[in-house]
Simulated scan of single mutants.
Amino acid sequence: MKRPFLFFALAALSAGTFFGCHRKCNDPQPGCVGGTIVAFTCMDGPLINVDARNRIGAPGVLITGQQVGNNVIAVVNRDGLGRLDSVGQRVYFTYVNDPSQQWNGLCCLAADGTRQPVPHLVLSNISTTGCQEPLAD
């Protein structure tokens, strides 16, 4: 007797998942990551503390000892940020880990980076409003 109930419960849960977001959902779409710009360094470039639900970063501690987050990434394509260049600013993006595009920071004379390595990622679709796509009517 429990099987028909279980079937209907799972069907209702699935329907709620598919039909629960009538307009744009507030959460970023899958593949979209959100975070906050926490610092700019010479060696590592812009640092973003990524939201905890996306475990793609590492603890970020600047050379000065200042902790800037627990899930920090470094932005390889620093020119791609455009006008998104303020500490404390929320950003949303997609990313790839492409070692061929990673900058090694050798031109920095001072050790101005993080104490331990953080992932260096190439960002795209950078925005302050999320990576949401409109749903078809």
Rank of each mutant, 00 (worst) to 15 (best):
D98K: 10
V87G: 10
Q132T: 12
G57I: 05
G34F: 00
S14R: 05
C21S: 15
V50C: 03
P30D: 13
V50Y: 00
K24N: 13
N125K: 15
R83M: 14
N97P: 00
G45F: 10
M1A: 14
T64V: 01
G45I: 08
R83Q: 14
R3N: 05
P30H: 13
R55Q: 15
V38A: 08
D98I: 07
A74V: 13
V87P: 09
G60S: 03
C32Y: 01
M43T: 11
L62M: 06
F18I: 15
I37M: 11
G20E: 10
K2R: 13
C25R: 05
I48G: 01
Q66H: 03
V91M: 08
F18R: 10
P30S: 15
E133T: 13
Q66V: 04
G60R: 02
A136S: 13
V72Y: 00
L135Q: 10
V87D: 09
G130M: 09
R55A: 15
V68T: 09
G113L: 04
P30W: 12
P134D: 10
G82W: 11
C131P: 05
G35V: 01
V50I: 06
V68C: 04
P117A: 15
G45P: 06
L123G: 02
R83Y: 14
Q116C: 00
S100T: 15
R23Y: 12
T64L: 01
D79T: 07
H120T: 04
Q101V: 03
E133W: 03
V72Q: 02
D98E: 14
I73C: 04
R55H: 14
Y92I: 02
N104R: 12
R53E: 10
A11T: 11
Q102W: 08
Q116M: 05
A15D: 01
R55W: 04
H120E: 09
G69Q: 03
L106P: 02
A136R: 13
V38E: 08
K2M: 06
Q101M: 13
P134E: 10
L135D: 03
I37S: 08
L135I: 05
I73Q: 04
F93A: 07
Q66R: 09
Q66E: 08
A15N: 06
G105T: 10
A110C: 09
L47Q: 07
S14T: 14
C107K: 09
N54V: 00
L10Q: 02
D85L: 03
A111D: 09
I48Y: 02
V68F: 08
L109K: 00
F93P: 05
P30I: 12
A136F: 14
A111I: 02
G57A: 11
F7V: 15
V91F: 06
R115A: 05
N26G: 14
S124W: 06
P59M: 05
A136D: 14
C107E: 14
P134S: 09
Q66I: 01
V61K: 12
Q102Y: 08
F18E: 07
A15Q: 07
V91Q: 06
N70A: 15
N104L: 12
A15C: 10
